[in-house]
């Protein structure tokens, strides 16, 4: 499949309270598998998905951080993060499981404008 559209996957939910966080990452991996490398933007509560050393065994699921660590294997190298949300949770990029690019509000607005499709999870 040739890439015809710039696709942004927007994720806004924390990792374990519901299944939308996982659905967003699964969609990203599927897009990459079909050579439609999407941009991935973590906004609001979704920054909690990125925290390193997650142990999800007590809630009967796989570590979401582990799933995110597989993104580079699918050539999803550019992961964008809502800088303000990270700050609100008292986190820095050193607390995160993968390398990310921090965006301020104007940069996020620009990102939303720059894509053909936004899949909002």
């Amino acid at each position: 499949m040739t890439q015809t559209k710039k696709v942004l996957l927007l994720t806004r939910h924390a990792p374990y309270g519901g299944s939308l966080a996982r659905a967003a990452v699964d969609a990203a991996l599927a897009a990459a598998a079909f050579e439609q490398a999407p941009s991935l933007l973590f906004m609001g509560d979704a920054v909690l998905q990125l925290v390193s050393d997650q142990d999800a065994s007590a809630v009967g699921t796989r570590s979401h951080g582990r799933v995110l660590e597989s993104l580079p294997l699918y050539d999803i190298d550019q992961v964008f993060v809502d800088q303000t949300a990270l700050l609100e949770y008292g986190l820095t990029s050193h607390d995160l499981a993968i390398d990310v690019i921090l965006l301020d509000d104007p940069a996020m607005r620009q990102m939303l404008a720059d894509h053909d499709h936004i899949l909002s999870f």
């Binding site: 040739t2 696709v7 699964d26 599927a30 897009a31 439609q36």
Partner: peptide
């Protein structure tokens, strides 16, 4: 599969 979502976005 999710491939059908990907195909639709393209």
């Amino acid at each position: 599969g999710l491939g059908l979502l990907v195909e639709a976005t393209a």
